[in-house]
């Protein structure tokens, strides 16, 4: 009777040990999956910031600065040489803004950011018009520039700033999301 009782207790303990091991195993798997998912999400987030938003912000800043220079040099184009020699000018404005636009277009952000996609389309359209006018301007003799040029430059500049701010805001939001997530590395 005593032996049977002891056998019974042994088997119950053993069962509990197996159950505990099983539970620990399941828990370890769950933790591993969660960690993996967290790391992947973080990676994806940093990838999005580093390979999409940050270069987009960089190139739109550059484009904005180039447009500023074009506007500046156009404003002073009628003035005497001694007045304008200190003003930095772009050697080939159409090429410069075209190359920045190309760099921007190469950055692929997927389809989950429709505002930025549409803002880029609007920018492309207006930069295209501007490049057309600038190319005609450089081939034409004389100093006549279309009356619409300053307004078009301003508009392209504004479109550039819109795109820039969309990416600055989206990037800030992602950083915020990232900092809101619990850190994987536990403090010692």
């Amino acid at each position: 009777m005593t032996r049977r009782k002891s056998e019974c207790t042994d088997s119950t303990v053993l069962k509990r040990v197996y159950l505990l091991i099983g539970l620990l195993f399941v828990l370890a798997v769950v933790v591993a999956v969660l960690l993996l998912r967290h790391t992947r999400d973080q990676e994806r987030l940093y990838d999005r910031i580093g390979n999409y938003h940050a270069p987009m912000i960089y190139y739109t800043d550059k484009l904005d600065a180039a447009l500023e220079l074009i506007e500046h040099s156009l404003q002073h184009s009628g003035k005497a040489r001694e007045e304008t020699h200190l003003i930095p000018t772009l050697q080939n404005p159409a090429y410069t803004i075209g190359s920045y636009l190309q760099a921007i277009q190469k950055l692929n952000g997927g389809t989950d950011f429709p505002e930025a996609e549409n803002a880029l389309h609007r920018l492309q359209r207006e930069v295209g018009n501007l490049i057309g006018i600038l190319n005609n301007l450089s081939t034409e003799t004389g100093n006549s520039k279309p009356a619409s040029l300053p307004a078009l430059i301003k508009s392209v500049q504004f479109r550039t700033r819109q795109l820039n701010r969309l990416h600055v805001n989206a990037s800030a939001k992602l950083r915020q999301n990232s900092s809101n997530r619990p850190s994987v590395i536990l403090p010692c």
């Binding site: 429709p114 505002e115 549409n118 609007r122 307004a151 078009l152 508009s155 819109q162």
Partner: peptide
């Protein structure tokens, strides 16, 4: 929100 923002950004003085 996205559609509203997009329509506002599209406004052009040209």
């Amino acid at each position: 929100q996205s559609r509203l923002l997009d329509s506002l950004l599209a406004l052009s003085p040209l």
